[in-house]
Computed example of a mutant assay.
Amino acid sequence: MTRSEQDLFSEAAITSFKLNGQFLAIAEELARPAGITAAWWQVLGAVLREPLPVAGIARAMGITRQSVQRIADLLVDKGLAEYRPNPAHRRAKLVAVTDAGYEAVRRIDPQHAEVSAKLAAELGLEQFAQIVESLTRLSAALEAIEVR
Score class of each variant (00 low, 15 high):
Thr2Cys: 03
Thr2Ala: 09
Thr2Tyr: 05
Thr2Asn: 10
Thr2Gly: 06
Arg3Val: 11
Ser4Val: 07
Glu5Ile: 04
Asp7Cys: 02
Ala12Tyr: 12
Phe17Lys: 01
Asn20Glu: 08
Gly21Lys: 07
Gly21Arg: 10
Gln22Thr: 14
Gln22Lys: 11
Phe23Arg: 07
Leu24His: 11
Leu24Met: 07
Leu24Val: 08
Ala25Arg: 13
Ile26Cys: 11
Ile26Arg: 11
Ala27Leu: 04
Glu28Gln: 09
Glu28Pro: 02
Glu28Met: 03
Glu28Cys: 02
Leu30Ile: 06
Ala31Thr: 00
Arg32Thr: 01
Arg32Glu: 04
Pro33Val: 04
Ala34His: 01
Gly35Glu: 09
Gly35Thr: 08
Thr37Leu: 03
Thr37Val: 04
Ala38Phe: 03
Ala39Asn: 09
Ala39Glu: 07
Gly45Gln: 01
Pro51Ala: 13
Leu52Glu: 15
Pro53Gln: 13
Val54Pro: 03
Ala55Pro: 00
Ile57Val: 14
Gly62Gln: 02
Gly62Trp: 01
Gln66Gly: 14
Gln66Trp: 05
Ser67Tyr: 10
Val68His: 03
Arg70Phe: 04
Ile71Gly: 12
Asp77His: 13
Lys78Asp: 15
Leu80Cys: 10
Ala81Val: 05
Glu82Val: 10
Tyr83Met: 07
Arg84Gln: 15
Asn86Glu: 06
Asn86His: 05
Val95Thr: 15
Val95Ile: 09
Ala96Trp: 06
Val97Arg: 08
Asp99Arg: 08
Asp99Ile: 03
Asp99Cys: 03
Ala100Ser: 14
Tyr102Ser: 06
Glu103Tyr: 00
Ala104Asp: 14
Arg106Cys: 02
Arg107Ile: 02
Pro110Met: 06
Gln111Lys: 11
Gln111Tyr: 05
His112Asn: 00
Val115Pro: 07
Ala117Gly: 12
Ala121Pro: 00
Glu122His: 11
Leu123Ser: 06
Leu123Trp: 05
Leu125Asn: 07
Glu126Phe: 00
Phe128Leu: 08
Phe128Met: 05
Phe128Asn: 01
Ala129Ile: 05
Ala129Asn: 13
Val132Cys: 04
Thr136Ser: 14
Thr136Phe: 07
Arg137Ser: 10
Ala140Leu: 08
Glu143Ile: 04
Ala144Trp: 07
Ala144Arg: 12
Ile145Arg: 13
Val147Met: 10
Val147Thr: 14
